[in-house]
Amino acid sequence: MDYRVILYHKQATSARTRFLRLQNSSVCLFDPIPMPAALLDRVESNTINHPASILQDAERRLDFPAGCLKAEGEYRHTVEVPGQTIQVILAAITTVDPPFAEAEKNGAGFIDLTQARGLPEIELQLLRCAYELVLGG
Score class of each variant (00 low, 15 high):
D2W: 02
D2Y: 04
R4W: 14
L7I: 12
H9A: 06
H9S: 09
K10L: 01
T13M: 15
S14I: 02
S14A: 01
A15C: 02
R16H: 03
R16L: 10
T17A: 07
L20E: 00
R21C: 10
R21D: 04
L22T: 13
Q23P: 12
N24K: 13
S25T: 12
V27K: 01
C28Q: 11
F30H: 09
F30N: 14
P32Y: 00
M35N: 04
M35R: 03
A38S: 14
L40R: 04
D41K: 02
R42S: 10
R42V: 14
V43M: 10
E44W: 14
S45K: 11
N46V: 03
N49M: 12
P51D: 10
P51M: 03
P51A: 12
I54R: 15
I54E: 14
I54F: 09
L55W: 08
A58W: 00
E59F: 02
L62W: 00
D63F: 05
F64Q: 06
P65N: 02
G67D: 00
C68W: 00
C68Q: 01
K70T: 14
K70C: 13
A71Y: 00
E72D: 09
E72T: 09
G73D: 08
G73H: 04
G73N: 14
G73V: 05
E74M: 15
Y75F: 06
H77L: 10
H77G: 09
T78W: 09
T78G: 03
V79M: 07
E80V: 12
V81G: 12
G83Y: 04
T85L: 04
Q87V: 05
V88Y: 02
A91D: 14
A92F: 05
T95I: 04
V96F: 13
D97P: 08
P98V: 15
P99Y: 00
F100A: 13
A103Q: 09
E104C: 14
E104S: 07
K105H: 09
G107E: 04
A108C: 15
A108N: 06
A108V: 13
G109H: 08
G109W: 02
G109R: 03
D112Y: 01
L113E: 13
L113C: 01
T114G: 06
T114W: 01
A116P: 04
R117C: 13
G118K: 04
L119P: 12
L119Q: 15
E121T: 06
L127N: 12
R128N: 07
R128F: 01
C129L: 15
A130V: 02
A130L: 00
Y131N: 07
L133K: 04
L133Q: 08
V134R: 01
L135W: 11
G136A: 01
G137T: 07
G137D: 02
G137P: 01
